Simulated scan of single mutants.
Amino acid sequence: MMRKFKSNGLVLVAGIVAAGTFAFKAPVAQSWVFTGSTESQIKDADAYTLSNTTPSNCEVSASLPCSLHVEATNRTQLQAYLDPKSTEEIMDEADGQRD
Protein backbone atom coordinates (compact mmCIF):
# COMPACT_ATOMS: atom_id res chain seq x y z
CA MET A 1 0.00 0.00 0.00
CA MET A 2 2.76 2.44 0.93
CA ARG A 3 4.64 1.64 -2.28
CA LYS A 4 1.55 2.44 -4.37
CA PHE A 5 1.10 5.72 -2.48
CA LYS A 6 4.73 6.72 -3.14
CA SER A 7 4.37 5.81 -6.81
CA ASN A 8 1.15 7.81 -7.19
CA GLY A 9 2.71 10.72 -5.29
CA LEU A 10 5.72 10.80 -7.61
CA VAL A 11 3.46 10.76 -10.66
CA LEU A 12 1.43 13.63 -9.19
CA VAL A 13 4.55 15.68 -8.42
CA ALA A 14 5.97 15.02 -11.89
CA GLY A 15 2.67 16.12 -13.44
CA ILE A 16 2.63 19.35 -11.47
CA VAL A 17 6.23 20.16 -12.40
CA ALA A 18 5.57 19.41 -16.08
CA ALA A 19 2.42 21.55 -16.12
CA GLY A 20 4.26 24.43 -14.47
CA THR A 21 7.11 24.18 -16.96
CA PHE A 22 4.83 24.24 -19.98
CA ALA A 23 2.65 27.02 -18.57
CA PHE A 24 5.60 29.40 -18.24
CA LYS A 25 6.40 31.29 -21.43
CA ALA A 26 9.68 33.13 -21.63
CA PRO A 27 9.41 36.71 -22.89
CA VAL A 28 10.14 37.06 -26.58
CA ALA A 29 12.04 40.02 -27.97
CA GLN A 30 10.03 42.13 -30.40
CA SER A 31 11.48 44.25 -33.19
CA TRP A 32 10.67 47.96 -32.82
CA VAL A 33 11.63 50.06 -35.86
CA PHE A 34 12.53 53.69 -35.21
CA THR A 35 10.32 55.88 -37.43
CA GLY A 36 11.33 59.21 -35.95
CA SER A 37 13.47 61.77 -37.72
CA THR A 38 15.41 63.50 -34.92
CA GLU A 39 17.72 62.50 -32.09
CA SER A 40 15.27 64.03 -29.58
CA GLN A 41 12.76 61.27 -30.48
CA ILE A 42 15.10 58.35 -29.70
CA LYS A 43 13.76 58.00 -26.14
CA ASP A 44 10.10 58.42 -27.19
CA ALA A 45 8.18 55.15 -27.69
CA ASP A 46 5.75 56.94 -30.02
CA ALA A 47 8.62 57.21 -32.52
CA TYR A 48 8.81 53.39 -32.89
CA THR A 49 6.63 50.90 -34.73
CA LEU A 50 6.35 47.20 -33.94
CA SER A 51 7.50 45.31 -37.03
CA ASN A 52 8.43 41.83 -38.20
CA THR A 53 11.06 43.14 -40.61
CA THR A 54 14.25 45.10 -40.13
CA PRO A 55 14.64 48.09 -42.45
CA SER A 56 17.09 47.60 -45.29
CA ASN A 57 18.65 51.07 -45.03
CA CYS A 58 20.52 50.35 -41.77
CA GLU A 59 24.20 51.21 -41.43
CA VAL A 60 26.93 50.54 -38.90
CA SER A 61 27.35 54.14 -37.82
CA ALA A 62 24.83 56.96 -38.18
CA SER A 63 22.88 59.36 -35.96
CA LEU A 64 19.56 57.50 -35.45
CA PRO A 65 18.73 53.92 -34.42
CA CYS A 66 17.35 51.58 -37.04
CA SER A 67 15.51 49.14 -34.79
CA LEU A 68 15.57 47.69 -31.28
CA HIS A 69 14.89 44.13 -30.16
CA VAL A 70 13.13 44.49 -26.82
CA GLU A 71 10.88 42.32 -24.67
CA ALA A 72 8.03 44.83 -25.02
CA THR A 73 4.71 44.03 -26.65
CA ASN A 74 3.28 47.56 -26.52
CA ARG A 75 4.44 51.17 -26.40
CA THR A 76 3.94 51.45 -22.64
CA GLN A 77 6.38 48.59 -22.07
CA LEU A 78 8.75 50.03 -24.67
CA GLN A 79 8.69 53.43 -22.92
CA ALA A 80 9.48 51.71 -19.61
CA TYR A 81 12.48 50.12 -21.33
CA LEU A 82 13.65 53.41 -22.88
CA ASP A 83 13.19 55.69 -19.84
CA PRO A 84 16.20 54.62 -17.73
CA LYS A 85 18.56 54.44 -20.73
CA SER A 86 20.63 57.22 -22.18
CA THR A 87 20.46 58.02 -25.88
CA GLU A 88 23.97 56.57 -26.21
CA GLU A 89 22.91 53.28 -24.59
CA ILE A 90 19.94 53.01 -26.95
CA MET A 91 22.18 53.67 -29.95
CA ASP A 92 24.63 50.99 -28.73
CA GLU A 93 21.81 48.45 -28.37
CA ALA A 94 20.19 49.30 -31.70
CA ASP A 95 20.27 46.82 -34.57
CA GLY A 96 21.94 49.12 -37.05
CA GLN A 97 21.70 52.86 -37.41
CA ARG A 98 20.47 55.29 -40.03
CA ASP A 99 20.49 59.00 -40.85
Rank of each mutant, 00 (worst) to 15 (best):
M1C: 12
M2K: 13
R3P: 00
K4W: 02
K4P: 00
K4S: 04
F5H: 08
K6E: 08
N8A: 13
N8Y: 15
N8S: 11
G9W: 14
G9H: 13
G9V: 09
G9K: 15
L10A: 09
L10C: 10
V11T: 07
V11I: 11
L12D: 08
L12T: 14
V13E: 07
V13R: 10
G15S: 06
G15Q: 05
V17K: 04
A19V: 09
F22P: 01
F22A: 09
K25S: 08
K25Q: 12
V28Q: 13
A29F: 08
A29V: 11
W32L: 07
F34T: 01
T35S: 07
G36A: 15
G36I: 06
S37L: 06
T38C: 07
T38K: 12
E39K: 12
S40K: 12
Q41P: 02
I42C: 00
I42W: 00
D44P: 02
D46S: 12
A47C: 07
A47R: 01
Y48W: 04
T49I: 13
L50P: 01
N52Q: 11
T53S: 13
P55Y: 11
P55S: 15
S56R: 15
S56P: 10
N57Q: 14
E59T: 03
V60M: 14
V60I: 10
V60H: 14
A62I: 03
L68W: 00
H69L: 13
V70Q: 02
T73C: 04
N74W: 05
N74F: 03
T76Q: 04
T76F: 02
T76R: 02
A80W: 02
Y81G: 02
L82R: 01
P84R: 01
P84W: 01
S86W: 05
S86A: 09
S86N: 08
S86P: 12
S86L: 11
S86D: 05
E89W: 09
M91N: 08
E93D: 10
D95K: 11
Q97R: 15
Q97N: 09
R98N: 06
D99Y: 09
